[in-house]
Design a protein around this nucleic acid. Structure first.
Length: 109
DNA sequence: CTCGTGACTCTTG
DNA sequence: ACAAGAGCCACGA
């Protein structure tokens, strides 16, 4: 049994969860938020990733929005994200969308 | 404390 | 398919 309020800046949990996404799979912001026990913290997930350094070993590119698409954001990273997904065998449509039915990660497995 | 901001999500039209 | 509005909540000034 963990201590939810003791040592848990939420970000650490989010980072750990993102780091657990297997290669070739993807997850959504809302999904990760729920998995770390914070159902309404989809934005916090985005905030955590925005805090991430460019050299981070974290597979942040496997995180998509609820529609299975890459969220637009300041900077040019969406392009990189698409390339990385493609490189991992994830089939991305021309508009940058992913078939969640096929690629969404289920942590229960 | 109040306010603005945001890599979100859902509902409407 | 797209745009707009509202709800949501942590964080920094």
């Amino acid at each position: 049994m963990e201590t939810p309020s003791s040592s848990n800046p939420l970000y650490e949990r989010i980072f750990a969860m993102v780091d657990s996404i297997p290669r070739g799979k993807v997850a959504t912001y809302g999904q990760i938020a729920r998995e770390v026990g914070a159902p309404r913290h989809a934005r916090s997930v985005g905030r955590a990733l925005s805090n991430l350094p460019p050299q981070s070993p974290l597979p942040w590119h496997r995180v998509l929005n609820a529609g299975g698409a890459i969220s637009p954001r300041p900077g040019g990273s969406p392009r990189l994200q698409l390339q990385r997904l493609c490189a991992e065998g994830v089939r991305v449509s021309r508009s940058g969308r992913v078939d969640l039915e096929e690629y969404q990660w289920n942590p229960d497995w």
